[in-house]
Design a protein around this nucleic acid. Structure first.
Lengths: 331, 331
DNA sequence: TTTTTAGTCGTAAACGGTTGCAATGTGTTG
DNA sequence: CAACACATTGCAACCGTTTACGACTAAAAA
């Protein structure tokens, strides 16, 4: 990058005013006489002046940028969340600085530190599981953080979620009501907060409560292929009811079952705990827990704007409603 | 944001050296005696010093940030591209500043200008169609720009694409070879460069060449529902071979056709010009043009790193290979 | 007329770094 | 022992803004 073509100083000189006045005009400060303002604006226009946001950031200590920490861009779940975040961020004139940490969380802390070093005004965190170091960093900084679609065990940070346990139990209840007794849980990352501290708990509670003994939890099912390949084991285990956390995985199971001649929903019922358009593309269509992903993102970002503005939050742990949408993969 | 806790100045004082030396240590400059370096590092560690990237950016005129301009986060096509970009960016220690311009391109130019004001070191542009103002802005700045998965009509900017025309013709050829004569094109944005200057051209060429007269171009089909609803018209028009640019749209058509009792591929063949995992989830599975989306993104980003480093590009217009992957939606 | 007041504007000091250049010291060479 | 090269360090200018503070002016109040 070469030396900036035209600076506030050039504008000041051309307009025969001080930099301070130009700065005021640029920032819409109204302590400027109308004629002066117009004179300055004319020069700005003529010179194609554009303020250097980095210098503004240094001087004002605000970058109008928020950091977004997500595992994977190509996972529709996070993409939908991001869209909600992005729309609200745009509305409030913030830019988004992206950091994908992969599913591994490898050097997550460095990524976060890097983001903070760039002086983001706030952070939205939507990875599944916050590592210890990451948590330390967040606690040390005074940059506000909001969790979207996840939470930390201690509720130390503001968050936006749905009631994962209730959703899980409602879904299991539907399977049970339909006469299925050999119920299984298929998840991606077993250590993720939502799974470990919510779905697993709800599942085990439910099984105990209804005196069902055949517990089946399948972990590390992340992709369509994973789901497809998992079907063999599911069949061997004589599972007849499944909750899968990702709908691509559910789709894989459905297609594998169909290929094997297993009838859905007669012999096997499946509910997806997340819903993207995959759920309506696969045949039979999936019964899903509809999470308001876009809204989760939007609300989280809105909360962050308040925090960045030093406003109080009415409620630091927002829980949005979900719906169980019945379709052809259950009776 | 309050005043930064610990600055380079604090470190310098504690370590009894000048800021310049601390700066050298932080930046890995090796003109520093080993003992001095260690002394400084110890202080950095003790004080939890972290450099302020905004100040660094102002002083060094490099932000190690690249701007990414995309239409829609939730479109898998762009998500895949982004992933390639992100991985390479991470490898070269760049952060990504996101700007989604929506499908409308509404005030695209402001979005771009905003990105440039933030002093990004480079820009990856992957929107479908570059507006006039946007082009002006890119031409005025000396921030390098690379187009990923799109191009401008004049080839003014470096780009990474596939040979869209060839792909289109090969796909049409397959349909024709399979005995289909009433061929249609289903696209999202008819004004997008890839469609307007490539697919439409290739389609019309092909039709003329083979003396096929029933030209059918359906525009504005962007979603699964659009595809599903489009089927009526397709049926009325007696179309028997379709190329759809998005596979969610193709999936919609397939499902609507199946629901209407139309046999695929006997009565209707469909090829998707883009391939995400939707193509293998829908039944029958889609024959697709496999675009190396991840690679397009990765190569584009790699090119950008060269440009940001003032290196020459071997080839400013990279064309990557595609493959036509046959599956059950064609014979 | 004199004093307040409010509205405009400029001065200059930050913000937290980078970097060219000069200064210093140390070892090497003739 | 003088001269020189080189490694190490500090000095200070600079990057392009924001903003506290004070100066100035003109109108309003006394």
């Amino acid at each position: 990058m070469q030396k900036q073509e035209v600076t506030i100083y050039d504008v000041a000189r051309e307009a025969k005013v001080s930099m301070a006045t130009v700065s005021r005009v640029v920032n819409g400060n109204n302590n400027v006489r109308k004629e002066t303002r117009e004179k300055v604006l004319a020069v700005i226009d003529r010179l194609h002046y554009q303020p250097n946001a980095v210098a503004q950031g240094l001087a004002s200590k605000r970058t109008t940028t928020v950091g977004l920490i997500m595992p994977d861009l190509t996972n529709m779940h996070f993409a939908e969340l991001s869209k909600g975040i992005d729309d609200i961020a745009t509305m409030y004139k913030y830019n988004i600085l992206l950091s994908s940490v992969g599913n591994t969380l490898l050097n997550e802390d460095q990524v976060i530190q890097n983001l903070l070093n760039k002086q983001v005004d706030g952070v939205i965190y939507m990875s599944n599981l916050m590592g210890e170091k990451a948590q330390e960093i967040f606690e040390r900084t005074n940059t506000p953080v909001v969790l979207a679609g996840t939470a930390d065990a201690n509720q130390d940070f503001p968050s936006v979620t749905i009631d994962y346990k209730a959703a899980e139990k409602e879904a299991l209840g539907l399977l049970l009501k339909n006469g299925k007794k050999n119920l299984a849980l298929v998840v991606g990352d077993g250590k993720a907060y939502v799974n470990k501290d919510n779905r697993f708990v709800a599942y085990k509670d439910f099984m105990e409560e209804h005196k069902l003994k055949n517990v089946h939890i399948y972990e590390d099912a992340r992709t369509y292929e994973d789901g497809y390949n998992l079907f063999d084991k599911i069949k061997t285990d004589k599972v007849d009811g499944i909750i899968a956390t990702r709908d691509v995985v559910a789709a894989g199971i459905v297609n594998a079952a169909s290929a094997a001649g297993v009838k859905i929903p007669e012999d096997l019922e499946i509910i997806s705990a997340a819903s993207t358009n995959v759920a309506k593309i696969v045949r039979p269509q999936l019964t899903t827990v509809q999470q308001p992903l876009y809204d989760i993102g939007a609300v989280a970002m809105r909360m962050l704007t308040k925090l960045m503005n030093d406003e109080e939050l009415d409620d630091a742990h927002v829980i949005l409603p979900y719906t169980l949408k019945k379709s052809a993969s259950t009776k």
